[in-house]
Design a protein around this nucleic acid. Structure first.
Length: 455
RNA sequence: UCCUCGGUAGCUCAAUUGGCAGAGCGCUCGGCUGUUAACCGAAUGGUUGGAGGUUCGAGUCCUCCCCGGGGAGCCA
C-alpha cells in the first residue's frame, strides 16, 4: 500500500460543527490546521495553557494531535476576551474561528476564534503544573500526566510502532493469531509467574505466547501477534515493567540465519515507518529521524557470544565464557557498535530448553539477542527451536521440567516436526529507544511496576 | 531480594553547629496589546512520612517502621 493512501483520513461524525448561525464549520484536528489557512473551522480540545497580557490573550489548546494557539484581542472582541480570561487549564471546549498563518507560532499557524463553547470547566486546579515534577508524583497522576508534554508524542509513536510491526508481517503473508493469556504452565519454567485461582486450580498469567505460536505455526505456516506478557520479577530498573507487550513471530521451515534476517528487516522497517509517519513527534522529543534511520542500515552486525565475551573482557569487564550479560555489558556492546547488534550462539546452559543446539557445538544454542543502541538493552530474543522429540525431552529432563504439562508441546514434534524459528520483541523497549525516553514507564499508557498498580 | 539516595505548603525545593518554619510555582485578586513553563505586585497556604527516644530545646541526633527515586540481579 502506498504511503499516501495509508495517510488518508476518512471523515467521521464530529460534534458541534455548526456555528450559531447554523453554518457548517468543519471540525479539524490541530495537526492538519496548516492545511486550512484562511478557512473557518471548528477545533475540539482542551485548554493546555493560558497567557494574558492586558489587552491580548493567548489560549493554547490541545486535541491529542497537537497544540494550537488561539489569539484574542480585547479591543476587537471584548466579550470573547472576558469569557476566555475566566477559563482554567484542562477546560474542555469547542472553538470556532479562522486559521491564520503566523511566523511567530511554533507550528506556523494560529486560530483567531469567533466563539468558544465550554463543554466542562474544572472546579479544582489541574494537578500537573507546567514545570518539573518527581516521577513518583507523575506516576500517581498518570491518567492526567498522559495529556501533557512529551507523553502525547511518545504514545503516538507507540501507536506507529505497533502498526508497523503488524504491517510488516501482514505484507509478507504472515497470519495474525493469538496465544492464551491464562495458562496452566510456565513457558520457560524458571522466571516468576503471577499465580491466580482458576476454579480451584492454579493458573498463571502468560509470560510469553511463544510455545502456543509454535503450535499455530504448524497449522498456519508463518504467524505473528502482539500480546501482553507478565513477569512477577521484582525488578526495579528503567528497562522493566511487570506487564508489557510482546510482539512475537514464529516461522515454520525457517532456520537461525533466516530468523536473524527477518528480525533485522523488521527493526529497520519499524524505524523507517516511524521516522516517516511520526517525524514531527520524534523531533518534539529531540530525536533526529534521519539519525535513527542511519542506525538501522542493513545488515546488522552479528557477533558470536564467545567473541562478545572476548571484546568485553578486553574492554575491562570482569566476564568469562559461561557468564550471562548484565546491563553494563549490553551498554558497552551497544557503545562499541553504535547500532543494533546481534549476539548469537549463547552457551546452552544459560538458555531455555526449547532452543535448538548448534549441530557444530552442542554446548551452544542457535539463538540470538538483539541489543539496541544507546544502552536501551535487549529488544529481541529469538532462536531456532528444537525440532527433535528426543533432544527436546532430554533438554527438559536436564532442566527438571514436568513432562506431563508439556505433552501438547511435545506433540508438535511427534506429528510432522519441521525446522522452525521465531522471536519475541519487547514493544515498550523499542518505543523507549526510538523516543529516547529515560524510563520504560513512559512508553506505555499505564505502567505496571513492582510497587505500582494505581491508576 | 540486595545496594544507594531521599520524604518539609497542592507541586519543586531551602532551612548554618541542635536555637522563631522559608522561597519559587500553582490557585485567588490587581497590573500589563505578542505571550512561549510569560512577566510584575499582593494575598493564601504547615500534624516537617509514622511511632518511640536523647535534650532546656529536634525538620536537624538515635532506634524501629512505612513510602518513594536510582541501580543490581533476572529478563523483553
Amino acid at each position: 500500500m502506498p504511503c499516501n493512501q495509508r495517510r488518508l483520513h476518512l471523515p467521521f461524525p464530529r460534534l458541534r460543527e455548526l456555528n450559531r448561525k447554523g453554518e457548517r464549520m468543519p471540525a479539524i484536528t490541530i495537526n492538519h490546521a496548516r492545511e486550512h489557512i484562511g478557512e473557518q473551522v471548528t477545533i475540539q480540545g482542551w485548554l493546555y495553557n493560558k497567557r494574558s497580557s492586558g489587552k491580548i490573550l493567548f489560549l493554547q489548546v490541545r486535541d491529542g494531535t497537537g497544540v494550537i494557539q488561539a489569539v484574542i484581542s480585547a479591543v476587537d472582541t471584548s466579550a470573547l476576551f472576558d469569557q476566555a480570561e475566566g477559563l482554567t487549564r484542562e477546560t474542555s471546549l469547542v472553538m470556532r474561528g479562522t486559521v491564520r498563518a503566523d511566523d511567530r507560532a511554533p507550528t506556523g499557524c494560529e486560530l483567531q476564534p469567533t466563539s468558544i463553547d465550554v463543554i466542562h470547566s474544572p472546579d479544582v486546579p489541574f494537578p500537573i503544573d507546567l514545570k518539573e515534577h518527581t516521577p513518583g508524583f507523575l506516576m500517581d497522576q498518570r491518567h492526567l500526566w498522559i495529556r501533557t508534554g512529551r507523553q502525547v508524542p511518545i504514545l503516538r509513536i507507540r501507536d506507529a510502532v505497533f502498526r508497523a510491526f503488524r504491517q510488516f508481517f501482514h505484507d509478507r503473508g504472515f497470519i495474525a493469531t493469538e496465544a492464551p493469556i491464562l495458562t496452566g504452565t510456565s513457558v520457560e519454567g524458571t522466571t516468576t509467574l503471577f499465580e491466580l485461582d482458576y476454579f480451584g486450580d492454579k493458573a498463571y498469567l502468560s509470560q510469553s505466547g511463544q510455545l502456543y505460536l509454535e503450535a499455530t505455526a504448524m497449522a498456519l505456516g508463518n504467524v505473528y501477534w502482539i500480546g501482553p506478557a507478565f513477569r512477577a520479577e521484582k525488578s526495579k530498573t528503567r528497562k522493566h515493567i511487570t506487564e508489557f507487550w510482546i510482539a512475537e513471530a514464529e516461522m515454520a521451515f525457517c532456520d537461525h540465519a533466516a530468523n536473524l534476517e527477518i528480525q533485522e528487516q523488521l527493526v529497520s522497517y519499524i524505524v523507517d515507518f516511524v521516522a516517516g509517519e511520526r517525524k514531527q513527534e520524534l523531533q518534539q522529543l529531540g530525536r533526529d529521524p534521519a539519525a535513527l534511520r542511519a542506525q538501522v542500515k542493513l545488515p546488522f552486525p552479528r557477533i558470536d557470544y564467545a567473541d562478545a565475551v572476548d571484546r568485553l573482557s578486553k574492554a575491562g569487564h570482569d566476564i568469562t565464557f559461561g557468564d550471562d550479560f548484565g546491563a553494563p555489558h549490553e551498554a558497552t556492546l551497544a557503545e562499541m557498535f553504535g547500532r543494533p547488534v546481534f549476539v548469537e550462539r549463547f552457551p546452552s546452559a544459560m538458555k531455555p530448553f526449547y532452543m535448538k543446539r548448534d549441530p557444530k557445538d552442542e554446548a551452544r544454542v542457535l539463538g540470538a539477542d538483539l541489543i539496541a543502541p544507546e544502552g536501551y538493552g535487549e529488544i529481541i530474543g529469538g532462536s531456532q527451536r528444537e525440532d527433535s522429540y528426543a533432544a527436546l525431552v532430554a533438554h527438559m529432563e536436564e532442566q527438571k521440567l514436568p513432562l506431563d504439562a508439556y505433552q501438547w508441546y511435545l506433540d508438535l514434534r511427534r506429528f510432522g516436526s519441521v525446522p522452525h524459528a521465531g522471536f519475541g520483541m519487547g514493544m515498550e523497549r523499542v518505543v523507549t529507544w526510538l523516543c529516547g525516553a529515560a524510563h520504560i514507564r513512559e512508553a506505555i499508557p499505564f505502567a505496571r511496576q513492582i510497587n505500582r498498580l494505581y491508576p
